[in-house]
């Protein structure tokens, strides 16, 4: 079983991407985030739910446990080499606007 809750090797930092309008506010990601870097936003998404937001950027390990838990496919984490620039989120919405994947 590959461990996920352990901190990432120091060579990496975590990035988390949130597709706020997909969120239904179940709270799984916030509850089960190992370093507890997420909290419910005070704002509403277009369906009236409070999506998660990152409250401790430095704490995110990019373990993607939020991505595994999220029943609405609304959040995921990635590990980025410390030296690299922040990746752009390639969400389905942006893809659709660019002509769609299929």
């Amino acid at each position: 079983m590959p461990p996920t809750a352990t901190p990432a090797a120091r060579k990496f930092r975590g990035e988390v991407f949130i597709h706020a309008d997909r969120c239904k506010g179940c709270g799984f990601c916030i509850e089960f985030c190992p370093p507890q870097v997420l909290a419910a936003a005070e704002t509403y998404n277009r369906h009236g739910y409070h999506p998660p937001r990152l409250v401790n950027e430095a704490g995110c390990t990019g373990c993607d446990l939020c991505g595994l838990y999220c029943p609405d496919f609304a959040i995921y984490g990635v590990r980025v080499p410390l030296a690299a620039a922040a990746p752009k989120p390639e969400t389905s919405r942006e893809l659709a606007e660019a002509g769609g994947r299929r």
Binding site: G67, R79, P87, E90
Partner: peptide, 17 residues
């Protein structure tokens, strides 16, 4: 995961539309 774009690992499996 050092690519310039990042994708939710579930995304390739989904009918996102």
């Amino acid at each position: 995961m050092s690519a310039p774009t990042a994708m939710n690992p579930v995304e390739p499996l989904l009918r996102s539309e």
